[in-house]
Simulated scan of single mutants.
Amino acid sequence: MQTVLIVIHLIVVIALVITVLLQRSEGGALGVGGGGGFMTGRGQANVLTRATAILAALFFTTSLALTILANLHRAPKSIFEGTVPATQAPVQGKAPEQSQGNLLDQLRQMEDRRQPSAPAPLTPPEPSPVTPSAPTPGR
């Protein structure tokens, strides 16, 4: 069924491209225009406009049908399938640690491991001797 729909889709695409290229171009870029004597004037514009609209509708219909058929037998899967939990993955040669709690607790534990355990106490800098200076005139 899907193969038949793909063939129909390709035929519609080719017909749509040809129909668009046959239309009279207002800018003169890609269209063949009114040459050839196939149809003239308003009749050609009406037929090609209707054909383009019908082929566009068929293109969207076959595209949607192909998408539905492709996803019809696909089983839903999680984005977490195939991933290894952080508690089981070795971290740079260390043995895996068993951690309890939720993800937020695990993140806090990882942050605690990254920070130094006891930061050095801050001591205020020694005051330097300040000599008073006389203000300069003009400032």
Score class of each variant (00 low, 15 high):
80 F>R: 12
132 P>C: 01
129 P>Y: 06
11 I>L: 15
57 A>P: 02
91 V>Q: 12
55 L>H: 01
85 P>I: 02
37 G>F: 00
18 I>A: 13
3 T>I: 09
17 V>F: 10
66 L>N: 02
88 Q>R: 08
117 S>Q: 13
104 L>D: 05
15 A>Q: 01
46 N>K: 10
108 R>A: 12
21 L>T: 14
121 P>M: 01
3 T>L: 11
86 A>V: 13
108 R>W: 10
49 T>H: 08
40 T>Q: 09
64 L>N: 08
52 T>M: 06
104 L>V: 11
131 T>P: 00
42 R>N: 14
24 R>N: 12
16 L>M: 07
12 V>N: 03
54 I>C: 03
58 L>Q: 04
105 D>Q: 14
72 L>Q: 08
70 A>Y: 11
47 V>W: 05
16 L>F: 06
42 R>G: 11
74 R>Q: 13
97 E>H: 07
59 F>S: 06
30 L>K: 07
133 S>K: 14
108 R>I: 07
71 N>H: 05
58 L>P: 02
137 P>G: 04
54 I>M: 06
60 F>R: 03
93 G>L: 01
76 P>L: 06
46 N>P: 03
2 Q>E: 15
48 L>Q: 02
60 F>I: 14
106 Q>D: 05
90 P>V: 00
61 T>V: 14
13 V>F: 12
77 K>A: 13
28 G>W: 03
91 V>W: 13
102 N>W: 00
56 A>G: 12
99 S>L: 15
48 L>G: 00
80 F>M: 15
105 D>E: 15
114 R>G: 10
94 K>N: 12
73 H>W: 07
68 I>P: 00
2 Q>V: 14
33 G>H: 02
89 A>R: 11
43 G>C: 04
25 S>I: 01
105 D>F: 03
107 L>N: 03
95 A>G: 06
118 A>G: 06
12 V>M: 03
50 R>F: 13
99 S>D: 14
44 Q>S: 09
46 N>L: 14
9 H>V: 00
3 T>Y: 08
21 L>E: 08
74 R>H: 12
98 Q>A: 15
102 N>D: 12
21 L>C: 10
